[in-house]
Amino acid sequence: MENKKKLQINNLIHNYESKDGEIVHALNNINLSVNDGEFLAIVGSSGCGKSTLLNIMAGMIKPTKGEILIDGETFTFNKHKIGYISQSDTLLPWRKIIDNVAIGLEIEGVNKKERHEIARELMESSGLSGFEDKYPYELSGGMRKRAIIIRALATDPEIIFMDEPFGPLDVFTKELLQDEILKIWEKRKNTIVYITHDIGEAITLADRIILMSYRPSNIKSKYIVEIPRPRDIKEIKHNYRFIELEKDIWEDIKNEVLKAKEEEMISI
């Protein structure tokens, strides 16, 4: 491949102790690389450790073994700028929206005038202008999510990690935001690693999809989406390739889901 590798995961193993003192083998020798400017989706059934994987990649959890490299260097928060968007609502409730969007820049030491300018521009481009001086509680769930997304973009990070960012939202808001993510990404080409259990969402957004197996998790299969861009969130669902991929991935994942179910039954 001529593509530059942005993120590399080498021989990653992660075990942790559960509340009952049992050792859980969460991740089993994962090797993965993400190209510069690639949109990668990681799909798996619940409990397959995909969130753990993302949290390790984003530097939130120290893995039991293995290394995470960004541009060939060991990843640290000091050296590398990343964006992290989780399911939870992580706007700081005591800050006005504009100061929430600008907080990454504030941490970097950008002066107030400049960071507000950047934040204002981003807010305008995502339909949030007019809400600069509002507090988070005054915004709807979808708008708050939007603010969280542009907050991650404000510092122009090298990689953005997203963990089912639209999980708790209703379907309509979800699709609107997916559309927005597509537009933003097609314009900016940030490297994105996106976790979801929604196969359709993964195909709609990503260049490449990785399917995780059930515990101890490993990469079970890889799919290249190959649907041309710019993509239309509505039309893509009728695309032949979309339908084919959805079917293949669903077949593939079914066994893992069944395996997870079985294990649950036993433990009950």
Partner: peptide, 12 residues
């Protein structure tokens, strides 16, 4: 803790 983690990923 989510808010603290958010700032941590920003390099705070």
């Amino acid at each position: 803790i989510n808010l603290i983690d958010t700032l941590r990923t920003m390099g705070a």
